[in-house]
Every structure is written in structure tokens, then in C-alpha cells.
Design a protein around this nucleic acid. Structure first.
Lengths: 208, 208, 208, 208
DNA sequence: GATGAATGAGCGTTCATTCAT
DNA sequence: GATGAATGAACGCTCATTCAT
């Protein structure tokens, strides 16, 4: 097997392992097992360390997420529509790639003392971007009066809670159909969530 | 020193340690250090295992949280007011006892395979109770139409995001005043958050 | 077994192991074996790391060496006599405690990047002290003209060569009597060595 | 690139690596890096094992040293002059080829359980040859009375100490000029060292 | 009952070497 | 013949737990 293919495979195994066992229990040994490697040394050969591997995972996941969500967000016209597109596509992605999002949340929540791109700093920067969007929407008159920082954190936190909740149920019941998760229909939940936050941010408090 | 006092002291040390270092790095050794114990065996003597210690931590934290939040929630009249009281008092508590809430979130997020009272099951049950409240508010006509499960998860997730964000900033800047955290005034954030979710759930879409 | 006794025993085992196998092959596993420990974790408990253990070894060896050599050096009157006392007592010590000196040389030669008290810095500081003595002897008119730095390095290097040579022979022939080593009678060698360096440093080039 | 050239290149890289990092840290990986090889397997392909590679290094270094020192020793007339030529040319060589001599000393000091040509056995055989020369000088009446074994070991040990000391200083201060090392002018040190040992071995105790 | 000493599994990492191609 | 991929043992170290006293 070629070197690049192994790298890819290890990243995939790491994502699945972190998603399933959580950050703390995702050891090289478990990842190597899943990747079909007889020893953890092969992982150490391909990646400079655990941080390096996790960074590669984050890059892979971010790439997939961007590819999935970006078009839908770009296609939406207006700040509110883009907000809805973000929330809905994020929850749709959770249906398509649950392990990816679970792993992402686990990694970002747990890594400490990492430079950019990993750990809480990455979470904070996502929130910051979100706040920018909200602020811009306010200036455009589309959104009402609220603290953009607070709502940005609320929205991203709410989304991550769905990721975490899906984690929970999936681990207890592997038989759930792809589009059901923890008893929640995630696609519907995305719409509901978008509705709710729309009510929270819209200038005119329109009821649907 | 009485046995109960020792237990209390160990629990306090464990809470601080988990809050500061995170779940994964909070080993018995670190906790014993902070509690001024010379050996981890004293922890093992008082607690049946790590799970048992963490359960005691959760109980302690839950007790403190209940004592702090319960009166304010009870004093509020109406479903919406109670929701606001919950959110605001929770963020006020984050100001008063940041370590407690950080530890709680860390524990509930990371413990796996635990029976009731720990881990994701505990998170889910908190969400379930919340959903009950929302459903009751709908039936009382105070709240509008939305999926209570979805909003329950969104609200608790949003609150936990503030806990996590406060963790982040606190660890990078020990000089912040007690009532400021990560550049966010948590008391104001509580009001903002309550405002936002009120707009999201109220039947008549009232604007403040 | 008490904690302090274990520490002492581990240090003793480490000294023997380093002396026998050399720095590079003296792993915690080998040391634990010799100390009668079932696992390396006990060593890690007593010492902060390999450096810490080696530092303790150096301290122990230095203590033994000082206790042995100091009185003889102090008893000698005059710079030349002290030089002789140093050389002779050092080689006598090599007879009494071969493992100690072998281990010391191994450690000082091989440790890199260590703070004071370990590694090449320690070797250099010993040479510096030696050079001071030689310089003082010159100023007192007892020694002739030569570069003290050069002779200090030459003398300490020569002594260490005997330590190294004794290592060699001992490892190949464990049956040698205590006062024979590598075919060399170390006590006689000490006298010979002192004679030779005396001829090299004395002002008047006296022949014995 | 021809096989012989590859071998030569690997040997050169190994010598530099051992000289810089010391025996224990000179792994195939580091050597391959320095040689510009993508895999350590190419080293294993050209050499039967680490011993084989080190033996080739020793052979290369010995060849260089012989080529450099032999003419000067041969050109010297008399046992004392040859001794001086040996010492001085050896320290001159340390100026010209510091890495070579450092690597040689590292290898000979640290390799264990090797057959002839490596390890302490090689060191001992060098000392034996030296002792032969001293003994012959005594029989010729040029040298005085002393134990040839002892002085042979002392002289070689002293020289090696300079090699070691140069290693030390060089690694801490890369700015030193080529002919200065650790604050010591090695060429002058060679003369001083030869002077000192001349005083130690000459029959008539001549002062310069 | 309480504690200092010990345990063994597991961690991420480096190592020289082997093997199929 | 030459090489990229893989191997498994060993490294120092941390962990929660157990046990004799």
C-alpha cells in the first residue's frame, strides 16, 4: 500500500475512533487496530505525533464540511437565509457524516495548548466568524438588536449539542437508521433549529 | 480529620482539577496533590473508583447549583419567566462558581459507559427535563409551536457553550475580574441569552 | 521496604547497571531487574526521570569519592604531594569501588544537554578545578612552566582512561582479583602515573 | 550513483552524525537524513548492520588518520621524536578533521561485544602498540624507567580527553574558528602535551 | 481503619531490521 | 539489485488500583 494511501487510511481510522471512543480513549493502538496496522509505530512514522495526526483529521473534516456546506450557504441570499443554510446544512452533514462531526467536536473541545487550528482556539475562531456574520446582518438591517457574540456562541453551542447528542444515542444503538439519531430526526431538527434562531435574530420578529 | 471531611476535601480538589486541566488530564495523582494527600491510595480508600469520585463531584456540584438556581426559578411566575430564571441564574452561577460548572460539563461530556447520574446519560436526562418544561409551557399556551426536544437541546447546549468558553478564556488570562470572562460579561450574556430564547419560544413573538 | 531504602537501592542498582552495560544500554528495565523491582514504574515514582536518577547516582558517587580521596589529599603537604595524593587515591578508589567510577565516567561522558552537575559540563568543571591547582602550584614555584589547562586535561584524561580500561578487562574476566584489573595492578599504576606526571610538572625536573 | 559512492556517502554521514550527536543518539534515521536518503533500508542494504557500518567508519577514519600522521611519525628520528610526532600530529588532525576523531572516540568507547576492530578491544590494541614503542625506547636507552603500559594508557587517554573536550566546546559554540577549540589552541596544546610527556619519559629528565 | 509500597497495563515514540515487489 | 512499506521489541513514563501491614 502506498504511503499516501496509508496516511489517508490512518486519518479515516482516527476520525472513526475518536468519534466512537472519544478523544481521551482514542489511543494510537486503537487507531492502528482499526486501520489494520499491526503496530502503532506505523502511525508515528506517518505523523510527527498525536497533535499532527489530529491536525490532519481536523483538516480532512474541515475540507469535507466546507465542500458540503459552502455551496448551500453561498446559494442562500441574505443574512437570515445564510444563517439558516448554515444551521440546516450542518445538521444535514451530521446525518451524512456523523463520525466526522463527532470527531471534530471531540478534538476541538479536548486539545489543549495547541497552536492555531486545534483546540479551543479553533472553536473560538469559529464563533468569532459567526459573530461577524450576525453583526453584518444587523448593520444590513436584517437582524434585530442583540449581542452578536452571545448569539454566535449560543448558535454554535446549540449545533454542537446536537452533534454530542447524536454521539450518545449512536453509541447505544447501532441499529438506528441513517436519518434517525437519538430519537431525533436530525433533518427536521435542523429546520426547527433554524426556525428558532431566526425568531431570535430577525428584526421584525416575524412568526412563520 | 473526620472521614466525611476528607471526602469533601477530595471532592473539592477533584472539581478544581477537572475544571483546570480537563477530564482527561485530571488523574488521581494531580487530585491528590491538590488535596495535599501524599498518596493516591487515600482517594481509592474513600472512593470505590474514578467513577465513584466523579459521581460524588457531580452530586456536590448539582447540590450547589440547585441551591443557587432553585429559589430563583421557583420565584419566577410563568413558564417563560422560569425559563429566563434558569438561563440567567445558570450564567450567574458560572460567575460565582466557574470551576464547578466547568467541571460538571467536563465530566458529563467525557464519561462513557456509566450508569445513571454520570456521562451523556445525565446530559440527556437534563435535556429531557427541560423539554418537559417547554412542552408544559406550550400546553399552557405560553409558548408557541416548536419541537420541545430540539429547543431543549439548543438551550442547554448554548448554556454549556458559555461554560466552555469561560474555561477557554480563564485559562489564558488569570487576571480577568470575577465577573468578566473571555471578554464576555457573563451576567449580561445571561440576560441576552434569555432574551434570545424568549423570542424563540414565545407564542406571540413579542419584541422587547 | 521503606521509601528511602528503595531510593538508595535503586541508585545502587543504577550505578552497577551503568558500570556494567554502559550508559546507552542501562535502561530502566535493566535497573529495575537488578533492584528486584517487578516494573519500571517504581523507578519513575522515585525519580522524576532518567536525568534525575543519574543525578542521584552522580551525587552518591561523588560523595563516596570525596569521602575516600579528600582526607588523603588534605593530608598531603605541598602542591606536588596533593597532586600525587589525588592521582593515587583516585586509582585506589578504582580498586575499591570500580563500578562507582566506571558509572561516573559513563554518565559524565554521555549525558547531553543537562544542567550543572551532569554531562560534559561537569567534566569540564573538574578539569577547571584541576587547572587552578596546577596554576597555584606554579605561582608557588613548586611547578615548572607549562599550560595548566593542557596538563589538567591530560591528567584527568589519563585517569579516566584507567577507569575505562578497567571496565574493559573486568567485563571480560569477572574472576580477576580485586587488586588486579586488565592485567594492570591499579595501585602500582597509580604510583607510576603520579611519578610520570610529577616529572612532567615539577620545576626542577628531579628524577626519583 | 555507484554502489561504492553510496557506501562512502553513508559512511561520511555516519561519521558526522556520531560526532555531532554521540554514539547513543546516532540512529540510522538520523544518518539517512544527513545522507539524503529517504529510507533507512538503504543503509541496511549496503551494510550488514550497525556494527558493520561503524566498522566501516572506523576503517575510513583510521585510513585518514594514518595518511595524515604516518608520514610525520616516519619522518621523525628517534623514539622521543616519534612520540612527539604522534602526539602533535594527532592534535593537528583534531583541528583538520574534528568530526573524524570525535566519531572514532565515540565509537571505540561505546561499542560493546564487538570482535576485533571495534570497541574497547580496539582501544586496548592501540594502547598495546603504544606500549611497545615505549618499551623499545627504553631498551634503546632513550626513555627512562617507567611502566610502559601505564604511560601508554596515560598518553592515549590524555589525547582522547582533548578530543572529548573539543567535542564539548564545539557543540556549544559553533562560532569558534577552526583552529581554536574550547578556548584551547589545539596546535599549541599538542606541543605542550608532547613537552609534558617528553619530560615524563625521557631518561635524563632534560628540561627544555 | 488507614496507609505507604507496589503492581501491571497502557501510553506515544524510536529503533534496527526484514520483506515483497 | 534496489526500495518503500512494514514489523515488533524496547524505550521512559503515567495510570488507577491493590495489598500487606
Amino acid at each position: 500500500m502506498t504511503e499516501a494511501a496509508r496516511r489517508t487510511q490512518i486519518v479515516a481510522a482516527a476520525i472513526e475512533t475518536v468519534a466512537e471512543l472519544g478523544y481521551a480513549r482514542a489511543s494510537f493502538a486503537k487507531i492502528a487496530d482499526r486501520a489494520g496496522l499491526s503496530s502503532t509505530s506505523r502511525i508515528s512514522y506517518h505523523f510527527a505525533g498525536k497533535d499532527d495526526l489530529l491536525r490532519a483529521c481536523v483538516a480532512e473534516i474541515t475540507g469535507v464540511a466546507t465542500e458540503f456546506m459552502r455551496p448551500r450557504i453561498d446559494a442562500a441570499a441574505g443574512y437570515a437565509a445564510k444563517l439558516r443554510a448554515y444551521i440546516e446544512s450542518n445538521l444535514d452533514l451530521l446525518v451524512e457524516r456523523p463520525a466526522h462531526l463527532r470527531a471534530l467536536v471531540e478534538i476541538l473541545r479536548n486539545v489543549r495548548d495547541a497552536e492555531d487550528g486545534l483546540g479551543e482556539a479553533a472553536l473560538a475562531s469559529r464563533t468569532r466568524l459567526f459573530a461577524e456574520h450576525l453583526r453584518a446582518g444587523q448593520e444590513a438591517g436584517e437582524f434585530g438588536a442583540f449581542d452578536p457574540e452571545v448569539l454566535a456562541l449560543a448558535i454554535t453551542g446549540a449545533i454542537d449539542a446536537f452533534v454530542g447528542a447524536s454521539h450518545d444515542s449512536a453509541s447505544h444503538d447501532g441499529t438506528a437508521p441513517d436519518d434517525a439519531n437519538g430519537g431525533i430526526d436530525l433533518r427536521r431538527a435542523g429546520t426547527e433549529l433554524a426556525d428558532a434562531f431566526e425568531r431570535a435574530v430577525l428584526a421584525n420578529g416575524v412568526r412563520r
